[in-house]
Design a protein around this nucleic acid. Structure first.
Lengths: 218, 218
DNA sequence: CGTTTCTTTGAATCCGGTCAAGGTCCGTGG
DNA sequence: CCACGGACCTTGACCGGATTCAAAGAAACG
């Protein structure tokens, strides 16, 4: 496992002193499993970057229904989903380390600050794209297609190796807009059809990538 | 009906020579009902602003399923949903007039160009927020709640007056991630419960705003 | 007006949700 | 090392909300 920034493995670490200005600007903060990184409706002047572990953004409706916005892995920027205040909260999925940058302080960092600003904007644009993809998933896809798409997305980060889910079934369900039971049932179905194989509840391998991605209409 | 930029009325016009730089930069283009403004997967160097009429952004899956990203009304910027190429296409809902700005040409416009750049970024941030709101709707809400939320959103633009739907039932359905039949049934239910009143299929008035917004959990 | 397109309604069906039990994994302490 | 407890995961049976299929009505258009 290299110390370089890598989207491929949820457990990889990001180098903190490479060319990337975010490696030097900001404060390193560790979070325990499940701990809140920022709250829904909190003022949003910070930007965050996953160093190790994984992070989810979630939003709760007043009656307890929950939607997960996205999952973030080492190297990913998060917390930019807003103009003034966060619509989602962010929590560490397991133990995680996060770099925190005060956005309004970026001007003090000269060139690095500028590069950081640019990084933030491009990350915001990517965020928008991912959210739109998520929209398609929630609006158009069946339970089976949702789960297939989710597994493909995870597996693609893990480049062929055994992929590891950083989140539990409830988080998957809340991300996909369905119940935990249906997630289980779809996982079973995909396994029975021989498209994926689970070793325990969090490790899996694609068995028939082509067939799986045929399920995921684009 | 004032000639000022106004989110409140889908048929309002935006002044083209006010303080807003977009009034002067860019080219005015009329589109016929249903006409495509830009295509899915098209290169995205343009920014657009609704002058009159209304616009929808849509994305088609290869098997014909359709998701509507959002609806845009006079004064709204659209077409910024991307880094490099459009994930959604845009079409005029009825006859519409749109200002088109070449993004890469903004640097030639001095101050106005800069102000425009800033406008674009803040519109992108707002776009992200709206998309996240849409995500909650698709992921968490029942058919009835979806329709109620949709009507409230429209009615709020129309400040108390008789609200006018710029889109047909199919567009509503594709925006809300449900079928046209279910949309009709929910509309009937809301009417039977006395929460809204339709005059024809496109004009309606809120009858019990409080009760309706109680349906829309936040 | 006649024709086409859009909207509404009804009946039957099905996918996913709900409710209820077991099962599995893991950490803790005896 | 094993027994216990709790959190998480899985499965089954049933239910119900939303879709599908079909057809009638209403509105828009030439």
């Amino acid at each position: 496992m290299t110390p370089q920034a890598s989207h491929s493995n949820p457990f990889a670490q990001v180098a903190e002193t490479d060319a990337d200005p975010l490696g030097r600007i900001g404060v390193r903060m560790p979070f325990a499993a499940g701990e809140e990184i920022y709250a829904q409706d909190e003022e949003a002047d910070m930007v965050y970057r996953v160093v190790s572990g994984a992070v989810r953004t979630t939003r709760l409706l007043s009656d307890g229904r929950r939607q997960i916005g996205d999952f973030y892995y080492p190297g990913d920027l998060f917390g930019l989903e807003s103009g003034t205040e966060h619509r989602f909260s962010a929590e560490a999925l397991g133990d995680a380390v996060v770099m925190v940058i005060k956005r309004s302080a970026l001007s003090h960092y000269g060139d690095d600050g500028l590069r950081m600003e640019r990084l933030i904007w491009s990350a915001t644009a990517r965020e928008l794209q991912r959210t739109q993809e998520h929209l398609m998933l929630l609006g158009c896809k069946s339970a089976c297609e949702k789960v297939a798409a989710f597994l493909l997305d995870i597996a693609d980060r893990a480049k062929g190796e055994l992929a590891v889910l950083a989140m539990g079934r409830q988080d998957m369900a809340d991300y996909l807009g369905m119940t935990i039971e249906t997630v289980c049932r779809m996982l079973r179905q995909l396994q029975d059809d021989g498209l994926v194989e689970f070793k325990g509840s969090r490790r899996f391998q694609l068995k028939q990538r082509a067939a799986l991605s045929r399920l995921v209409v684009v």
